[in-house]
């Protein structure tokens, strides 16, 4: 019997091998897909395990409420608030610069610019997103701060204003592109409705398109905050690395990220409390940016579902 149909059985055998190889490939691809999940778990695992001994030495209450962060002093004090205040102040300055400029750019590109202008400006914006932050740090310290010192002579070399402004400029293309995407997704029929009632472009943009795209625009702002909080090199270079519990932009201060860099630049003693403290700071940073990112993505998604 088997001899009667040798061709078919050979084909079948080949088929089995074929299916087996296909299966192997699928499993290999799935494992690569899993790497993203593994990285997230890795981040959480490392941050928690490396900072656990830190929280045995420093109570959570002191960590979250003390306003003194002096890891290098003889009397060590670990209160995260000075680092948080620095982070929030610089991010705040950046937003004051980036939100109006970014929004205007987005409205202009989406509602006013001709096709040709938009196609020229968008790639340039994309280019700017690729500029390394260490270069922006150079500008903040050696170009923007000296200019600010001419206007305000008491400004110290290391301050939060200069890096904040530069960070704002850095974030503009980011806000502009996310907000513009949101506004372009508003259906044309809504604009046409407004035009038919005799509204001008500006009126349509402000009273029809922007309200319809609110969640997308807000998402752009939220994601921008998250970027500002996580930004490292600009502040590490230009804001000074001294923890300082203040919201005054003309003082120097350290951010969470700048602290991590300043410790990493020194001699890291594996297992020492200095080493552990950067992981504790890292947890705070990770929680802040992760919740903002989730919030941002959620708002953005809510927007796309509506139309």
């Amino acid at each position: 019997m088997a001899k009667k149909n040798p061709k078919i059985s050979r084909a079948l055998a080949k088929n089995i091998r074929r299916n087996f190889v296909e299966r192997l490939i699928e499993i290999a691809l799935m494992l690569s897909g899993l790497i993203a999940v593994l990285i997230t778990f890795g981040i959480v695992f490392i941050l928690v395990t490396e900072s656990l001994p830190f929280f045995e030495a420093v109570s959570l209450k002191e960590f979250l409420t003390s306003t003194v962060w002096t890891p290098n002093f003889e009397k060590k004090n670990y209160g995260i608030l000075p680092l948080v205040s620095g982070t929030l102040t610089i991010t705040g300055i950046a937003l004051i610069v980036a939100v109006p400029l970014g929004t205007i750019t987005a409205v202009y590109l989406s509602e006013f610019a001709s096709h040709k202008i938009r196609e020229t400006i968008k790639p340039v914006l994309e280019l700017l997103v690729g500029v390394p932050t260490v270069v922006f740090g150079y500008f903040a310290l050696l170009l923007v701060t000296p200019i600010l010192q001419k206007i305000y002579p008491d400004l110290p070399t290391f301050n939060m204003l200069g890096p904040g402004i530069v960070m704002g400029v850095m974030i503009v293309p980011y806000i502009a592109s996310v907000a513009e995407d949101a506004m372009r997704a508003v259906p044309m029929s809504m604009r046409e409705g407004a035009y038919a009632m005799g509204a001008t472009r500006f009126q349509t943009a402000v009273s029809v398109v922007m309200p319809a795209a609110t969640s997308g625009i807000v998402a752009a702002y939220i994601l921008a905050v998250s970027r500002g909080i996580g930004e490292t090199m600009i502040v590490a270079i230009a804001a000074g690395q001294q923890p300082n519990f203040t919201f005054n932009p003309v003082e120097s201060a350290a951010t969470i990220t700048a602290y991590i860099v300043s410790v990493a630049l020194g001699d890291l003693e594996h297992g020492g409390i200095g080493y552990q403290s950067i992981f504790a700071a890292g947890i705070v940073l990770f929680i802040m940016t992760l919740s903002l990112n989730i919030l941002g993505q959620w708002t953005r998604k809510k927007f796309t579902e509506r139309y």
């Binding site: 909080i229 996580g230 991590i260 992760l290």
Partner: peptide, 19 residues
């Protein structure tokens, strides 16, 4: 996870790598 990883600050990857 992929979406979130894109938004994680780069310095956090540095901490992961250090540990």
């Amino acid at each position: 996870n992929v979406a979130n990883l894109a938004g994680v600050p780069s310095i956090i990857y540095g901490l992961l790598a250090l540990g």
